[in-house]
Simulated scan of single mutants.
Amino acid sequence: MGSGMGAGRMGTQSMDQHFIVMMIPHHDGAIAMADLALSRARRPEIKALASSIKASQTQENAQMRTWYRQWFGGSVPTWGEAMGHRGGMGMMGMGGTGADLSWLKSASDFDRAFIEQMIPHHRMGVMMASMAQSNSQHPQLRVMQQAMVKAQGQEIEQMAQWYRSWYGTP
């Protein structure tokens, strides 16, 4: 696993390249979960959160793709290309999206299942962004990483409060 940050091409990538290659599919997972919530959630709070997640992470993905082209001279590689076609696990063992969309699609209590999946998904994103900040060469990416940590941290706390209020369990 080399540096412990992933398999495949990490040895030839900067931390910023690696972060972008790993964060875009991670965001894609949250966006897919948010899309499901927009059609399946019962509570307006979940729908509003999903709308916010979809908007912010879609914008962040677009910005990271632009930076990747500017800084590294090409398009962001797909997951398979980034992993050297080995199928290895990604940053922190997360792999692709880290979300079980098939389970979420069929969950009998969608709102509860959404929170149960989005909290750990966001925690992984916060960890990825927190760890990458200290080694980021590009100040504008560092600012985005700090914003990700703050926004997702607040969303985690909000979801945890809803969970306790609605389901009475931690």
Score class of each variant (00 low, 15 high):
15 M>K: 06
53 I>H: 09
86 R>G: 15
27 H>T: 13
164 R>N: 07
131 M>P: 01
91 M>C: 05
20 I>V: 15
27 H>W: 10
141 L>M: 01
81 E>D: 14
20 I>Q: 03
115 I>Q: 13
43 R>F: 13
165 S>Y: 10
1 M>E: 15
106 S>E: 12
72 F>K: 07
99 A>S: 12
106 S>L: 09
156 I>E: 05
154 Q>Y: 01
59 Q>M: 13
66 T>D: 11
118 M>H: 04
1 M>T: 08
23 M>Y: 04
104 L>P: 00
61 N>F: 12
123 R>D: 00
141 L>H: 02
67 W>M: 11
53 I>E: 08
104 L>C: 09
84 G>C: 06
29 G>F: 06
110 F>Y: 10
72 F>M: 06
98 G>V: 00
3 S>N: 14
57 Q>M: 11
93 G>Y: 00
72 F>W: 13
154 Q>P: 01
157 E>F: 00
128 M>C: 01
43 R>P: 01
31 I>G: 11
134 S>P: 03
97 T>K: 14
88 G>P: 00
92 M>F: 14
14 S>L: 05
68 Y>F: 06
139 P>C: 01
155 E>G: 10
144 M>G: 00
147 A>P: 02
17 Q>N: 11
17 Q>M: 15
121 H>A: 11
138 H>N: 04
47 K>D: 14
151 A>S: 15
125 G>H: 00
133 Q>G: 11
162 W>P: 01
10 M>Q: 11
41 A>S: 11
170 P>E: 15
2 G>I: 08
104 L>R: 04
98 G>D: 12
55 A>I: 12
80 G>A: 07
80 G>F: 07
150 K>W: 01
28 D>L: 15
71 W>F: 09
12 T>C: 08
94 M>Q: 04
24 I>Y: 11
131 M>Q: 15
87 G>F: 08
35 D>V: 07
96 G>R: 12
50 A>K: 03
73 G>M: 14
43 R>G: 08
60 E>N: 02
128 M>V: 07
147 A>R: 01
43 R>T: 03
138 H>G: 03
31 I>S: 08
123 R>P: 02
151 A>P: 02
35 D>H: 12
115 I>A: 13
20 I>C: 04
108 S>Q: 13
95 G>H: 01
95 G>S: 00
89 M>G: 07
104 L>S: 04
120 P>D: 10
58 T>R: 14
60 E>L: 04
112 R>G: 01
139 P>I: 03
53 I>S: 01
52 S>C: 06
147 A>N: 06
128 M>I: 12
19 F>N: 09
133 Q>H: 05
124 M>Y: 05
95 G>P: 02
124 M>T: 15
90 G>M: 11
144 M>E: 03
38 L>I: 10
118 M>T: 01
87 G>P: 13
34 A>L: 11
133 Q>L: 13
137 Q>C: 01
29 G>L: 02
45 E>D: 15
167 Y>F: 13
127 M>R: 10
15 M>R: 09
152 Q>F: 04
124 M>N: 09
104 L>E: 03
144 M>T: 14
81 E>K: 03
153 G>D: 00
111 D>H: 13
75 S>E: 13
7 A>D: 08
42 R>M: 05
6 G>R: 07
16 D>G: 04
168 G>I: 02
155 E>S: 09
148 M>V: 15
136 S>A: 10
8 G>Y: 06
170 P>R: 10
117 Q>H: 12
76 V>L: 08
157 E>P: 06
103 W>Y: 15
105 K>C: 06
34 A>S: 14
